[in-house]
Design a protein around this nucleic acid. Sequence first.
DNA 1: ATAAACTCTGGAGTTCGCGA
DNA 2: TCGCGAACTCCAGAGTTTAT
Length: 272
Amino acid sequence: EGADWTETRVGTNAIGTALAEAAPVELLAGEHFEQGQHPWYCTASPVHDPRTGDLLGVIDVSGPALTLHPAIGALVETGRRLAESELWRHHQQGLDRLRRTAEPVVAGAGGPALLVDDDGWVAHSAGIVPGARIAAPVEGRILAVPGLGACLPERLTEGWLVRPADTARRVRLDLELGHAPLLRMRSGDVGWVRTVTPRHAGILVQLRTAGPAGLSAEALSRALYGDAEHLVTVRAEVSRLRRLLGAIVDTRPYRLAAGVDLSVHKGLEVGG
DNA sequence: ATAAACTCTGGAGTTCGCGA
DNA sequence: TCGCGAACTCCAGAGTTTAT
């Protein structure tokens, strides 16, 4: 850890040159820039992220030049392929998990839609035959998707629902306050129910009261606790709430997302 | 003079662990 | 299980420095 084998630091060497060229490199003895490495052979192959193509690192085998075996190159290349195939397998498992958890949302979207991960890899589709990948979704930014046209990505608990912007629906929330507050959500034809903690219910009530202007962490702390001494707690609670509800709650400042209509029932006092 | 690069800072998000 | 907060990371914007 801390060693620097970049070309700019030590000149031509298998690790640094493989990083610079993003290609396999084999150097023997005097092919190294540094004289101190002349007794060495070095064989390196760069590892790329199979999802993004990003250069992740290098697998390198180095040793005394006289011990160079003809199979070293194949060994390094095999290691590189194993690493990348393992990364790809992990990626596929992530898409499978996403498909299992969010498929009902796509199925009930009532029109063409895609379920994609944070990098735009398609886990599931309805009403369209997509490629393997679309542009990475960004909150609130229109995406051009072949076959779907302009789409507005919608954050789910995991992944994104992508469908034509003009069909993005309003989200209706019915919050039933009580011992175990219940949140009923409905977006278009899709509905689901979640229990939320009293504190989270309190946050939702305060955000609804604040309206589109929203609340800073300090203001939300004052609203919930009566003082501004609970900023860290407020951030943590909103973070958990957003993990539970996704893009229902926006930040900077904290507020209900555009298109979210929250109604509160039973009228019990909760969370300040 | 201007743009680019760098540094600093504060707000926000996340994770983890503790106590009730 | 819930509420809380410490400790960390991340990010964006402002300010400063450097290169052209």
